[in-house]
Each structure stands twice: as structure tokens, then as C-alpha cells.
Design a protein around this nucleic acid. Structure first.
Lengths: 391, 391
DNA sequence: TTGTACGCGTTATCAG
DNA sequence: CTGATAACGCGTACAA
């Protein structure tokens, strides 16, 4: 169906000098107002503001004066539409049920996620991008939520268990995606993660070699969380290598929260059976919950049972006993995720032809799996004396 | 009238059936692609997606099928430009110097701000808005940063000391503004805050009436922080009313962090002079730092000095001793700020004529100063035995 | 050096 | 019930 006709009415083009047109949606000054006030065309205003090319100093000053007087700020949406990208990146995370209940006294999934958010914001800010935040309610259709947010951003960071890694390829077509705390085995997206394996191996070695504690439990979180799953597997396997003992039956499953961990541990304790010599946890909050449950059951930490966490949240050092844990650089993870993402966004922007994207040098050369180091921080909850410098 | 033929060069205007035009900035499907695939006009597609008016079921299904097959998502920027608002609200907060140093071992301003962020995100999400986050580096021009962000949002939430309240009127012209943790005395913007006065009065009453502790110090934060200033003033004045003693010289000034508070307190302690019977702090982190500094100086808490915090961060109960503190509903503050802001945004959207905004009923009837209750949570650091339910 | 005329992808207003 | 098309505000080839 071609050969359609276009009316000669001038098809809605603007009258050059900024004489004004129909309904305005907002009362804010536009580039037309600035142009009119400065007695120039909008093109000149645009050029001054994006300091391109050569502009006569006098003209430039006139424009800047008008900008100042109107306190004009170019609209972000219009800019995004016109330039093809919005200078916004999105960060999505999955809420636990407790997170969704505003009045809940339960603590949040907080802390790690929050540090990531801070790091991501910091880096985005530095690169001239803004960070759009989106938590996904516990019961919601996550893929749907991600797709919805993709409309507002140039790229997405997906935290931990937001989507199954098998589903990301459908998203990558839409915009660059960084998996933060992913398995590192997803070919369709960039990955940024901490060295979970190294961290858990260090824990196992410390427990077995320094303290001779061979029987251990592990407190994990959601099964669909790569971070939790990998930590559990790495710990069990390292313990096995060292002649220790932590098999599938010794892995408890909680929800990242202190109260959740306290609950499952209490159940296990009242069920009877032999106490382990150590309990490793997939994050610090659950270690706190574990200590709490043990103490309530009159089990001494670390004398009877050693407890080790993961994250090194800022209060770990102030707990009783001070918590031995694996430090992971949460803010750097967030920052690094944004760096990688922005790199990918820019790489993609260079190649309008979608087919060539994956092979564009600027894109291909970028690392696709960033692994940041972890470090065992020894305090008292493993049985060691707390070193001065770890306080 | 008509008669111009559209040739293959396509002088720019759209030919009805979605045959395609010049450079495309992104490879994503547009509403034209959907329309073409479904054999309808873009208007029909738009109507189906925004389910307006009546549409023939058959047509609707054809459109939805095309949408699904192309996995089409309407672009946010275009939508924002066309509808006049973006469905995005911004939340801005001022970083401390430590926040800006990624590699710093110092803890962040964290926790309270993070809870606010979570609450804001939660509420925004619920209302169909997205939350744009922006931390302002310590040395930066805050007003400038705020203006820059205003380009990308429909409304702004400004936390604590982001801008002086005298400067907000210039921002309010641009978009609705909510001052979160403001003084409540700013006529130019909505305010959402906690009942600082009530909380500090409860602290003073508890110290004096229950424990007979009359001589007190107060650990404050930045002078330009309304929250800190108000808490300090309220505490001093309540102490005076009760026959206690905490005057200007007894107010130490730190930076919201534990290490900062520990530092200033240590200085004061080594300077000699008489110890107070109690130390109240403007937030929990500083209370933690205070306990730390006192303990390091062999002063017992709570036997020698009682320490009380503010916020009730989630680890307060796990500290040694468990921290007595004033709970403020941080997430609710964030959520409430978004609620108010979205209300204002919608109110303003109803009245395109800027002059009428302030008097529009939907806008005028909205509360302009929301105050959320605080509550004294008694644990052990004030000298009380920790009640079971506060653990 | 500056101005004109599109185009970006939507929504909304009219005609039919 | 559906289609054509004018905005929305900005960037930018192309002309002047």
C-alpha cells in the first residue's frame, strides 16, 4: 500500500521564529522561549548548550543570559527521544515478603542490597547517568516488571535472583544487561560478582585448619539465588576436600533475614540431634539470627559452636561476639556493575546496526565476567581473639 | 489541497501504514511496527494499550498479538514527552565525604537514608511511578544538582540538608517538591518529617524521671541538617524544663557516622572535665560510636553513662548493651513523601495554568506538613533491663 | 556563523 | 469504531 498522499497544509511544521503553538503540557520554558528571548534560533541555543562548533561569543552570551533568566533546563524526555538514549540506567532487585510489608517489624533484606545501590548510584552519577531503582514485590511477575522498566532506561542491572539466567537473552535484545551476583556462567549478559568460591574456601580452611572444627552446618537463603547457592556449594565442597563434613542435609534454607535464620535454626535445634562445631551463613544478617537462636538455646558462641557470616556489614564488628565474616566489596560491586553497563550502552550506541553489536570491537573487548575479590575477616565468633585492627 | 505524492525518499512525514523512514536510533520495535503487523493505525494500537474507549474485540486481539510477537514496549521518553509527565519521581540526598570515597573503610551515612529509599521505592512502585536516585557529592553545588535532576522527573523529594529551605521556592516553580526531614516551617514545599520534638522529650523525661540523670551531653551532626538541629534543640530545651542540664556547650558536633562521633567524643574525654550522666545522640550510628569511645576509655555503659540513640536501626537490639533509642518510621517517611509528592504532581497536572496551581482544590486540600510519630524504645543502654519484647 | 525543517515515538484531537 | 495527523521539546543534517 503505497502512493498515499500527504496534504499540502505544511504538515505541522513549526514557524521559524518560535511563534507559539497549541496546548502546552507544562509551564516550563522550552528551547523556543530561550531562542525568542535571545533573538536567535533554537539550533543556536542547542549548540551553545551542548557546546558544539564555533559560536560568536556575543551570541553565546546572549543565549546564556536568556537561559539564566528563564532558568531553563532542557527536558530529559525530549532529549532522550531526540538523542536516542536517556542517560538513565536501571537497578532491579527482588523483595522478600517482609520487604513488601511496610509496617513489618521484620528487618529487611537490607544492607547488602543497600550498599550495592549506593555504589551504583555513585558510579552512575560520576558517569553522568541517573539511577532508576525498582524493587519487585515478592509475588510479582519479575520478567514482566523488568520489561516494563526497560522502557525507561538505557540499560539494566539485575540483582541476584531477579530473573532466571535462562530468561535474560530475551532482555538483552532490548537493552544491555548486567547480572549482579550472577553465576558467571550466563553467556547472554555481562556479569559482576564477588569471589564467593574463594571466600567460602577460606572459611572452610580456617575452621578446619585453625580450629579443627570439622562438622558444620550452612545456613543458605533462597534456592533461586545464585549467590546463596554458590556459597553453599562452595562451602560444602571445600569442607569435603579438607576432610570436614557438611553435606546436603546440613544446609538449612532461610530467607536472608536474621529472624528467618533464627527460626529455621531453632526448629533444627529443638528437633534434637548432635550440634555441629560450626555454622557458616550465606550473609551476616542470618549469622546474627543464628547467634541469637543459639544463645537462646544456651549454646555458647564461639565456645560450643563457631559462627561465620558473609558480607561484613558495618555492624558486624560491634556484635557480641564480634562476627567473623567474609568481606565482599558491596559498593564496588554496584559501582562496577554500572561501569560495565555504561560501557556496553556506549558500545551499543556506536553501532546502530543491531547485527554488528556483538562483534563491535569496543563491545567485544569489554570483560564479560567481572569477579571482585573477597577476604576473610577474622573476629571472635569463630573462636579467634578479635584482632585490634578488625574492631 | 492534497496531491503531493510520497515517493520512496519519503519527505519525512509518516505514510499511514507504517512503511519506514530515515535513521532509527534504536533497533526496538515502535508503535508503527505493531500497527503495520496488526494492519491497523497507530492510534488504534495506542488505544488498545491504554485501554480507552470501545474497540472491536477482534481488532484488539490482533493488536495484542502483534504486541506480543514483537515484544513491544512503548518507549518511556516518548510517552513522557507526549503526555507531559514521565511517571518518575526523584529522591536526592547529600553524601558525607566518606560516602564519596568508594574505597573508604568508614561506614556510610547509611541505614536511615537507605530505609527511606526503600520506603520511597516501595510507594512509588505501588503508585505506578519509578524512583530516580541521586546522591550529591560532598563538595558539589547542590542547587545545581537538583535543577539538573529536575529535568528527568515529575517531582522531587529532598532529604534533610540537600538545599536550604530558603532556596526551595525557586525549585517549586519547576516541579512539586517534598522536603523530607525538613523543619516543617517551609511555606514553599510540602514537608514530611518525624516527630523529633516528641521523641527527644521522651528521652529527656526518661533520663530524668526514671533514672535521675540530669547532666547530659548531646551528639549532633551537621549544623545545616534540620533533623540534627531540631533534635539537639528539643533535647536541650526538654532537659531544661525538667531541671536537667544540657546547654550549648554540651552539644558535640559530628557527621552522622560512628567513627565521627567516636572521634569527637574521645577528644572531649581526653580534654578532661566531668563526665555527664547521659549522652543522647542524633542517630544510632553516632550512639554506637559513643559507646565505643566510652568503652575504650574504660567508662561503663550504662552504669557510668547512659547512652541513647535515634532511629532504631535494625541492629540496635543486637548491640552490647542493646541500645535504647527513639524509633522513627524511616520507611514510612519515604513512602509518605512519595505519596504526598505524587498527590501534588497529579494535582498540578490537573491545572495546566500555573497561576491556578496553588488554589486548585485537589492541591490545596492536601496536607502540607506530615508529621509521623516517634516512639521511645527502651533497652539496656539507658540503664533499664532490656524488656523481652524489645529484643 | 546561523537558521530551517525534519525526525525521534508517543498521545490526543479530530474527522469519517 | 477507526484512521490521519498535529503536537510534545530537543538534536541535527542541510542550507544559507
Amino acid at each position: 500500500v503505497d502512493g498515499l498522499e500527504v496534504d499540502s497544509e505544511g504538515a505541522g511544521s513549526r514557524d521559524g521564529a518560535g511563534a507559539y503553538r497549541g496546548r502546552r503540557l507544562s509551564a516550563l520554558p522550552t528551547i523556543y522561549d530561550v531562542a525568542a528571548k535571545a533573538g536567535v534560533s533554537i539550533a543556536t541555543v542547542s549548540r551553545v548548550l551542548n557546546d558544539q562548533e564555533a559560536i560568536r561569543p556575543l551570541t553565546r552570551d546572549r543565549v546564556l543570559k536568556a537561559v539564566r533568566e528563564l532558568s531553563y533546563v532542557p527536558d530529559g524526555a525530549a532529549k532522550g527521544l531526540s538523542r536516542g538514549h536517556k542517560h538513565v540506567v536501571g537497578l532491579m532487585f527482588a523483595n522478600t515478603p517482609a520487604d513488601d510489608d511496610l509496617s513489618s517489624e521484620e528487618e529487611l533484606n537490607l544492607l547488602f542490597t543497600d550498599s550495592v545501590i549506593r555504589g551504583a548510584e555513585w558510579s552512575a552519577n560520576r558517569l553522568g547517568y541517573s539511577l532508576l531503582l525498582s524493587g519487585i514485590p515478592a509475588g510479582a511477575d519479575r520478567l514482566r516488571a523488568v520489561r516494563a522498566l526497560s522502557a525507561k532506561v538505557d540499560g539494566l542491572i539485575l540483582l541476584d535472583r531477579v530473573v532466571a539466567e535462562s530468561q535474560v537473552s530475551s532482555l538483552t535484545k532490548r537493552c544491555p544487561v548486567v547480572l549482579l551476583a550472577g553465576s558467571g556462567r550466563c553467556a547472554d549478559a555481562l556479569t559482576v560478582r564477588a569471589d564467593n568460591e574463594g571466600g567460602m574456601r577460606a572459611v572452610a580452611e580456617h575452621l578446619v585448619n585453625e580450629h579443627g572444627r570439622r562438622r558444620a552446618w550452612f545456613v543458605a537463603a533462597y534456592p533461586d539465588s545464585p549467590d546463596s547457592a554458590i556459597r553453599a556449594a562452595a562451602f560444602c565442597s571445600a569442607m569435603a576436600d579438607l576432610g570436614g563434613d557438611c553435606d546436603a542435609a546440613d544446609v538449612l534454607s532461610a530467607d536472608w533475614t536474621a529472624s528467618g535464620a533464627a527460626r529455621v535454626l531453632q526448629q533444627r535445634l529443638t528437633a534434637g540431634g548432635e550440634l555441629p562445631a560450626a555454622i557458616a551463613c550465606a550473609n551476616d544478617q542470618m549469622a546474627i539470627g543464628a547467634v541469637h537462636a543459639l544463645t537462646a538455646a544456651s549454646v555458647r558462641v564461639p565456645e560450643d559452636v563457631a559462627v561465620i557470616g558473609f558480607d561484613d556489614i558495618q555492624v558486624a564488628r560491634y556484635l557480641t561476639p564480634p562476627l567473623t565474616t567474609v568481606r565482599q566489596p558491596s559498593r564496588e560491586l554496584g559501582a562496577s556493575a554500572v561501569d560495565s553497563l555504561v560501557g556496553a550502552v556506549r558500545g551499543r550506541a556506536l553501532t546502530p546496526h543491531a547485527a554488528g553489536v556483538a562483534h563491535h570491537p569496543a563491545y567485544a573487548r569489554r570483560p564479560v565476567d567481572v569477579v571482585l575479590p573477597t577476604q576473610l575477616v577474622i573476629r571472635n565468633s569463630c573462636g579467634c581473639p578479635t584482632p585490634r585492627e578488625a574492631i
